[in-house]
């Protein structure tokens, strides 16, 4: 009996990601969720600009490549045109929390019935490791070579907490994928974010605290530790909004 294999909602294309990059794990969790919910044929994904720009090659469903930060607006257009399709966007921190912040907040406020997978690895990976809106205080990047200084570079943005101030979202959760139990939790959250859309419940976003060994300048294993030691204290895991849970209480 096969207990684990590549999900069929992933194509055979080989991921271009660096060794140990958690994009691959999250791609797989999204694809597993699509498979298990039986929605591959009616799912449309939106890829961002950033490291996962080529995600359209990896997901076997129909895909659209969006301009930097605009994936939630593109997803909105698709969902309004085809309300019975399942629409998700897959975005990094530069895309979602910096250039696309206006689209992110407004789409959440509208309670748009879409699913957003948000990869927070505190850095711009594709362009070679610049400071992200989620970069940590003191974090050394190409554009904060002396460490992020709040005096001139401000503070990291916590997306789940920020969106939880809005009435629009149905579901907001922060997970990570740096250990087997964490991956299992992340899978549950991602699947729920799709299930919510199927049930017409509205805006669901899962923030995945992720790694970037290459631009953090550490090994893949050290990156997983870095998540525990540096990222989680700044970005606590948990469910920040779950309307159906609140209603059942």
């Amino acid at each position: 009996m096969i207990v684990f294999d590549k999900p069929k909602s992933l194509t055979d294309a080989v991921f271009h990601y660096c060794p140990g990059c958690t994009h691959g794990i999250v791609h797989r969790l999204v694809a597993e969720s699509i498979d298990e919910l039986g929605i591959e044929g009616r799912t449309i994904g939106i890829a961002p600009v950033g490291c996962s720009v080529l995600a359209y090659n990896y997901f076997a469903c129909d895909m659209i490549e969006a301009a930097h930060g605009r994936a939630p607006a593109v997803a909105t257009g698709v969902k309004r045109a085809l309300p019975d399709r399942i629409v998700f966007s897959y975005q990094g921190d530069g895309d979602l929390a910096s250039i696309g912040m206006c689209e992110t907040v407004s789409t959440a406020a509208r309670g748009e019935n879409i699913t957003i997978i948000f990869i927070n690895n505190a850095i711009y990976g594709m362009t070679g490791g610049q400071m992200a809106p989620t970069s940590l205080i003191g974090q050394v990047t190409q554009t904060s070579p002396y460490g992020r200084d709040p005096k001139t570079q401000g503070y990291p943005i916590r997306i789940c907490e920020l969106l939880a101030t809005l009435d629009g979202p149905e579901y907001l959760a922060r997970v990570t994928v740096n250990s087997v139990p964490h991956v299992r939790q992340a899978k549950k959250a991602i699947k729920k974010a799709f299930q919510n859309q199927i049930e017409g419940k509205g805006f669901s976003l899962v923030e995945v605290v992720s790694s970037c060994p290459t631009n953090w300048g550490v090994t893949p294993l050290e990156a997983m530790k870095w998540i525990d030691e540096k990222m989680i204290p700044q970005y606590p895991l948990g469910v920040y909004r779950d309307r159906s849970e609140e209603a059942s209480r």
Binding site: I44, I46, I64, A66, A67, R70, A73, V74, A75, T76, G77, V78, K79, R80, A81, L82, C102, E103, V105, S106
Partner: peptide, 19 residues
């Protein structure tokens, strides 16, 4: 749909036109 900006509006058009 009254979008949050002209930028969002044209990208919603992009999404709908894609279908």
């Amino acid at each position: 749909l009254q979008a949050e900006s002209e930028i969002a509006a044209i990208n919603m058009v992009y999404g709908a036109a894609s279908t």
